[in-house]
Write a protein that binds this DNA or RNA. Structure first.
Lengths: 331, 331
DNA sequence: CTGTTAGCGCATTCAA
DNA sequence: TTGAATGCGCTAACAG
């Protein structure tokens, strides 16, 4: 039962059809300079023998595998899941296969996996948020063609724009009348952090009398819940959470403590994870189009594979989703 | 920039070291019957040239690719994400690469992808819940060695046990004093459905005066919310939802309608999705160890690849997680 | 212990 | 238009 199914070879088809290997190869590859009658005979033989060319042998002689490799830090991370799906479907639609590697958030593993999987493929899509800039630059040359995801470097990249939608959320809150807003900071090393801080700075300088106080929190539910006291002490009437999980933690803690949302406190998240619409009240957030991000990554890599230079940096802009967790401040 | 990095070949290493191809091959593969001095010279040459064997050429001559393929219906489905991670990490630990295909829930696509990706790998792990038994049986022979996930067939399989934990949840509710329990039915075609119904039947026959009423619902949040009226009309004091999403929908609707949970109604879900612990009250549910399921799938396939026959069917048992959404019935 | 040779299965020159 | 020969890069017989 464990036996590999035996596949017919081109030699067998040639013998069956009474022609040479070359002719079979020509027919299978749609070369027109073959007598129609002969071609038909070959096709029939191929069909009865259930033949199709061995992709390995083909790869070896053609120098391309019709496969791309993808390295992600954690397959269980929702960010990469959507990305991977968009990527996979787009690549499959173009006749490519996808080799994945989960680096388990381990940096040196990232490097090894990238190099190794790249040799079995025609190009690489690299999600390596942890890797140092130096290490990244070092690897990039050895794995070209390569496309980076959510990270800049000496290679084409696709990334989500965090700055624009965060600023849009701030404008939304400001428009509702909020003048003192708290920002629950998450991971400082996150590639998106600089963008978020930039959006905060923009708002501070461009919006009259708009104060934004930064409160260290974290990236998960517990961090959000734990920050409630600090938020209340800050005097803020609205909160920008680092992500939806943090927002939900805060929302949950607020509800437990009898702080009404959005009556006494408005809360906005980021990411639009599937559950964001089901909290009470539903969460205002920004939807990162991860699937689209993956599709773009493939498009960029495909350009590279075809010898064209894609745009150096391609950006997808998350859409702000206004729900019930934000409203005008009390009184 | 799009140029592929040029890799040294075994011929170049041989020339550089002044030996034959065979010797280089022997050294690279750790064959001990090589003069230590020569071996050292070869290694040094390989190092300076940055050589490592072309995996494609190796695959062709060895007849194995050190790669396995995985076909899933939807990469965005949480069930497969954990599975894929467990699988990927386990396979990588054993020096194997993973080729994935997302069939986009399309049955004929499942077949094609399975066949095609299988030819680029040494074995297949197939998640094909939609495929008919006949179509499955048809494919199975052509893709061996193969391991099925969450589905029985003429091949080794790994699956989650839905019956035992569902029964355990029922016992939990019965133990709390509930005697009339509603079951929110989901997808009838689901492979797990028969198991759930079996658990229900077991309970009905083995627990004295225990009524279980079946209410058609669905598999998502909206379906759960929509079933509230039917649940209340049924006179049940506790509910077994098809999955966590359905449970959360019901919980949300109940809260909105002023029905206290677990005071007036106990609710249990299934799956333990990441957010289940963060609802108010937190959800009693059963945690399907998807990552472990993936690791088991790899272990079974590895056995097959090594010529051993693994257990025909390997089962992981979800652990029941008791949280705040279940309690003794009112009064 | 080392080198020579023959494929793995295929695409593609070059002749015919 | 077709067939014979060459090689993609490597491993594994087979000699020496």
């Amino acid at each position: 039962m464990a036996a590999a199914p035996k596949q017919a070879t081109i030699t067998q088809v040639a013998a069956h059809a009474g022609v040479s290997l070359a002719t079979v190869s020509r027919v299978m590859n749609g070369n027109t300079s073959v007598d129609p009658a002969l071609a038909e005979r070959v096709k029939s033989s191929a069909a009865t023998l259930g033949y199709s060319a061995n992709p390995l042998a083909r790869s070896l002689v053609l120098g391309r595998t019709q496969t791309i490799s993808v390295v992600v830090p954690d397959l269980a991370n929702p960010t990469f899941q959507g990305m991977l799906r968009g990527l996979s479907r787009a690549a499959v639609a173009d006749g490519y296969h996808v080799l994945i590697s989960d680096s388990d958030e381990h940096e040196d593993e990232e490097r090894v996996l990238a190099l190794e999987s790249r040799r079995r493929s025609d190009g690489l899509i690299l999600c390596a948020p942890r890797m140092s800039d130096a290490a990244l630059a070092d690897v990039l040359g050895e794995v070209a063609p390569v496309v980076l995801v959510n990270r800049a470097g000496a290679a084409p990249s696709v990334a989500a724009d965090y700055r624009t939608p965060l600023r849009a959320i701030i404008d939304h809150l400001y428009g509702l009348g909020h003048r003192r807003i708290a920002y629950l900071a998450g991971s400082r090393h996150s590639a998106s952090n600089a963008q978020r801080l930039a959006a905060l700075d923009d708002a501070r300088t461009q919006l009259a009398a708009c104060e934004i106080v930064e409160i260290p929190a974290g990236v998960d539910f517990a961090a959000g819940a734990a920050s409630l006291s600090a938020v209340l002490d800050s005097g803020a009437t609205a909160v920008l959470a680092f992500n939806d999980l943090t927002a939900m933690g805060l929302l949950s803690a607020a509800t437990d403590r009898g702080v009404s949302v959005p009556g006494q406190l408005s809360i906005a998240g980021f990411d639009d994870i599937p559950f964001a619409r089901y909290t009470s009240p539903a969460l205002t957030t920004a939807a990162v189009p991860t699937s689209q991000l993956g599709a773009h990554a493939w498009a960029a890599l495909r350009s590279l594979l075809q010898g064209r230079e894609p745009a150096a940096e391609l950006t997808v802009v998350p859409e702000v989703i206004l729900r019930g967790s934000t409203a005008p401040p009390a009184r």
